[in-house]
Amino acid sequence: MSNQSTDTSVAETALKRAPASRGHIHPHHQSFSFARVFAIASNTLLELVRLKVFYFLLIFALVLIGSSAFMINFTFQEQFQVLKDSSLGAMSIFTWLLAVLATAMLLPKDIEDRTLYTILAKPVPRFEYLLGKLLGVLGLLFISTVVMTGLFFTVLYARQELEIAKVVQESAAMAKGMEAAAETATEAVTGTVASVSEQTAAAVKAIKDSTFSWSLGPAIVAIYLKAALFAALTLLISTFASSWIFTIVTSVAIYFIGTIQPIAREYWLANNAGTPLAKAFLALVALLFPDLQLFNLVDDIVAGNTISNILFLKTASLGVVYVTVYLFLAYFIFSKKEL
């Protein structure tokens, strides 16, 4: 064979320094390495990006534009309310759906293609593998949330400026008419002109107040946390599920149960006094079916209620606790899994 000799010479360079450079190539094995987790996380993110999952953002943009097209007859307060309501609602659904769908296929695909064998045959602990996969999805959700927030704020800002321009134009026309009248009339009218500019300023302020408010931040963080919770939960289900269809169906079912469970719990508690057994049962139910109403800050915020810092911190830490618990449960099952 003609390429035998070149193969051999390359082999020399690729293999001959094996004994000499061994210490260099094999750093002391660390029981936890952030570099390995990062390699798996960025690879997972890259996979999802190259699978073109970001195309769903186009649909979000359409929802955004569509929702502001049909409300010409509303007052601006109503318009902004509907815009915020539908945008945050769409963000909530899209990030949740993305979390479930993107996570459900990660493990089954790696197992089916035997890619998992090649990864775990390297010095990679199983916990790092799971953590890397989860962080990859969380990264994807983060980017999606940021991009959707950007689109949402752009549209909201554009509509705000449009409304302000309209108000300013109207009041300018009004003032002009009054000035014309002032030339022939008494001083009283001059006072009215001044009050028109005051009114304009008040109207602009009212518009600004009903668009951007600080409470949008907590709402968006809560949306992200809910999606993160579902990513971790879906990962947990996929460690024991027999197929990704099962994983998705179970995860979606838990979503719906989690949405209605506070109502069921109240009803149940009203009929059963708080015995220790009942409390333990409720705690288990709360772990398996997270109370999603707690993450629903959107309704309050859109309605104009402020969210107390305490409530926000409680929601945020609850989200973090759920993600952590699900991750460790997933590791517990995955570490015993026979591949």
């Binding site: 094999h26 094995h29 029981s31 293609d113 035997r114 890619t115 064998y117 090649t118 010095p123």
Partner: peptide, 16 residues
């Protein structure tokens, strides 16, 4: 896990 430092593995019909 440390023992894997010394092993390279190629599974049957791998898909990377």
């Amino acid at each position: 896990v440390e023992s894997h430092e010394e092993v390279g593995f190629l599974p049957e019909n791998p898909y990377f």
